[in-house]
């Protein structure tokens, strides 16, 4: 496990560094100027956030099915959602940085942007629910239900915001006008996809381990407390026996 994590981490570092170097080396374009370089990380970040919430949903479903129920699915769901929230926030931030010079505003109420913001809040709620404490099994089950609910909301939100923006005026804001870009941009973006996906995997592996360790620590401290109490009770009986 740890060798694999190290390998993934190393690969993530190398690809990420290459993306940064090659991405910053891309020539500015006529329409988008220097900001076109964000293409190397913005679409990959958006993809990773979808991927992470997909993994959370699958892991939650696996936890809820009695045949595959195991605490590790809950750990995976939580770890992936945490990384996903970070990536969603980064998607919105990099998008805003790109939008300001290109559209003239930091934020527009475009369908995709609105949906991404709603998704961020949905999963922030999910993470808050995970943190409420209490019995780990109850908590895991409740969180799994909430994750599945949140994922089913995404398509509804998708249709709602799409219609909301397009019923009256059609506004087509495409972040990547691919026809204008030559192969270099696409190549760096694809490298970015690999780099960000590896980074996602690496971060999730680490978060997964932390989740598991926290769970184990909880169990162990309970066991230790019980053992201590028993020892105390045992000592008390011995003293009474000696006293008698």
């Amino acid at each position: 496990m740890s060798t694999l994590t190290r390998l993934v981490g190393g690969a993530a570092l190398i690809t990420l560094a290459t993306t940064v170097v090659l991405g910053l080396g891309l020539p500015p374009t006529q329409e988008q100027g220097d900001y076109v370089r964000l293409i190397a990380i913005h679409p990959p970040l958006a993809w990773a956030s979808y991927l992470s919430f997909g993994v959370t949903a699958l892991a939650s479903a696996a936890y809820l099915l009695p045949r595959t129920r195991a605490r590790r699915w809950d750990h995976i769901a939580g770890a992936s959602a945490e990384v996903g929230v970070v990536f969603t926030a980064l998607t919105l931030i990099t998008g805003s940085i790109w939008g300001r010079p290109t559209w003239g505003v930091w934020w527009v109420w475009d369908a995709r942007l609105t949906l991404t913001a709603l998704m961020l809040f949905l999963f922030l709620g999910y993470l808050a629910l995970r943190r409420v404490g209490g019995d780990p099994d109850t908590n895991a089950k409740r969180s799994a239900i909430a994750a599945l609910l949140a994922v089913t909301v995404v398509p509804i939100d998708h249709f709602a915001v799409q219609w909301w923006r397009t019923l009256h005026q059609r506004q087509s804001l495409t972040l990547t006008p691919k026809e204008n870009l030559d192969g270099n941009y696409i190549a760096v973006m694809l490298l970015g996809f690999v780099a960000i996906t590896l980074t996602y995997a690496w971060l999730t592996m680490h978060r997964f381990r932390v989740e598991r360790a926290m769970d184990e620590a909880g169990d162990r401290s309970l066991d230790a407390a019980i053992a201590e109490r028993r020892a105390e009770a045992g000592a008390a009986t011995t003293t009474t026996a000696v006293g008698r």
Binding site: G125, V132, I145, V153, I156, D157
Partner: peptide
């Protein structure tokens, strides 16, 4: 129901419910 019985239900429910009922 999901939030019932939690100590933080008053503060958690709006965060959970409002993005869901946004549509």
């Amino acid at each position: 129901m999901l939030a019932a019985g939690l100590r933080v239900r008053e503060t958690l429910l709006p965060l959970l419910l409002l993005p869901v009922v946004a549509p």
